[in-house]
Each structure stands twice: as C-alpha cells, then as structure tokens.
C-alpha cells in the first residue's frame, strides 16, 4: 500500500490486479477494495487464481463452484465508489450470473521465449511469431468446454474477458446488457449471508492473516438502481 500511495503521489496512474485463492475472506477483499479506492487507485481488476502447474503452492486453487460463491459475495452489494478496470459482463461471469466459453487467443503472452502457447496461463511451448502461434496451436484442445483437465477450473481474464468483450461489441443486445451491468450494484441478500460464513480453506496450516473488515449487515438499494 505504501508503494501505491507513493506512485499516486508521484502523479502516476495506478491500477491494480487482485488474484484470489482458497481461503480468501470476501469481507477482507471488500475492505481491500475500499482501501484501494481511498488511496487513489484509478481502477481495479480481480480474478480467481488459476492452477499454474509450476506454482510453488499447489493446494489453494479455487474450483469454479467456490470461485462463483466467493465472487458473488464480493461483487454483490457493490459499492458505488469501486471502479473496475474490467468488462462488467466478465464480472458477472465470475459471479456465476452468466456463462462464457474460453477465447484462448484473446490475451496472448509474449516474453523472451516468444509467444506462449496456447495462452497466458498454460505453457505448452512457444512460437516465434504471432502468426505461428495462431496457425500451429490446436485451439480445440483448450477451454473448459474442450475437456482438457488443465482448463477445468479456469475463469481468468485471459480467456474469458475477451469473450465478454466480443459479446459486448458483437450485438446491440450485448452493448445494452453491458451498459446495464455497469450501473448495477447487484443487491443480493443471499450474498450478504455469504459474508457471514466462516472462511474455511481446504488446506491451511494456520488461519490466514486477514485485513480487518466490517461485515456488512444490510443492503441499500438506491432509488433508480437497476436490479
């Protein structure tokens, strides 16, 4: 946070990306969003963590069911002060309110090794050119719907937000639904109840260190807010 404050004070435009794993407390995350907006972050991104095969920790990856419940708790009863640097239909996707298929090439990754195949998350080799990436990758092998176990729990921006963007700009219906989503604060009493559930990660040596945050107890639906 000190770094963020320093960057904002230095005149930089600051945006953040928050990745959540098993054991994340939605109250803590909501408090974190409040803090980020208070210190002057321009906009935030958030997503469930993905099962990186090379990650040191292999025990705290959220499955889709838990991801959707977590993000319903976090992103429902949304505060007007929160600004997201995201397609709002993608946020509905991670809340479990809509379904999208993966567009694995939507956010390609380029590094010193080349263009990562097939996507930002999986590392199945590298292509030397973007055209080689597109031509030499068997795209039918990827995405949750492909049956590839490596894609089973993925709900990350790199495949699914591109799909949401395509949906937004693919039709007037998509544009309209996106506009509605941007004005929606998603009042949801059930989601408030989720905020009261104890956080029980499947694997944990000790309770995680959490930011102290108030548990909200009511929903305020402002006049004119679409639900």
């Amino acid at each position: 946070m000190e770094g963020i404050k320093a960057a904002v004070a230095g005149g930089f435009r600051v945006t953040t990306n928050t990745t959540l794993f098993d054991g994340a407390d939605p109250n803590s995350v909501r408090g974190h969003f409040d803090d980020l907006m208070t210190v002057g972050v321009e906009a935030m991104m958030v997503a469930p963590g993905y099962t990186y095969e090379k990650a040191p920790d292999q025990k705290h990856f959220l499955g889709r069911a838990r991801s959707r419940r977590l993000f319903r708790a976090i992103l429902s009863n949304r505060k007007k002060s929160w600004k997201f640097n995201a397609n709002y239909l993608y946020l509905e996707f991670i809340m479990g309110k809509r379904d999208f298929k993966c567009t694995a090439w939507a956010m390609p990754t380029f590094s010193i090794f080349g263009w990562q195949k097939p996507c930002y998350l999986l590392q199945d080799g590298y292509a030397d050119t973007f055209q080689e990436l597109i031509d030499s990758t068997d795209w039918s092998n990827y995405g949750t719907e492909s049956g590839n176990p490596k894609c089973a729990n993925c709900m990350v921006h790199s495949g699914y937000e591109g799909t949401a963007v395509n949906y937004t700009f693919g039709s007037l219906k998509g544009l309209w639904e996106t506009a509605k989503a941007m004005m929606n604060l998603y009042p949801d009493k059930g989601a408030l109840d989720l905020l009261h559930e104890p956080v029980k990660p499947v694997h944990s040596f000790n309770p995680l260190v959490q930011i102290n945050a108030q548990i909200e107890t009511h929903v305020t639906v402002e006049e004119g807010t679409r639900v």
Partner: peptide, 8 residues
C-alpha cells in the same frame, strides 16, 4: 461443481 482444484 468443483470446490477446490487439486494442484499437481
């Protein structure tokens, strides 16, 4: 339906 994804 998966709650937690077992890693490798």
């Amino acid at each position: 339906s998966v709650e937690v994804m077992e890693g490798r």
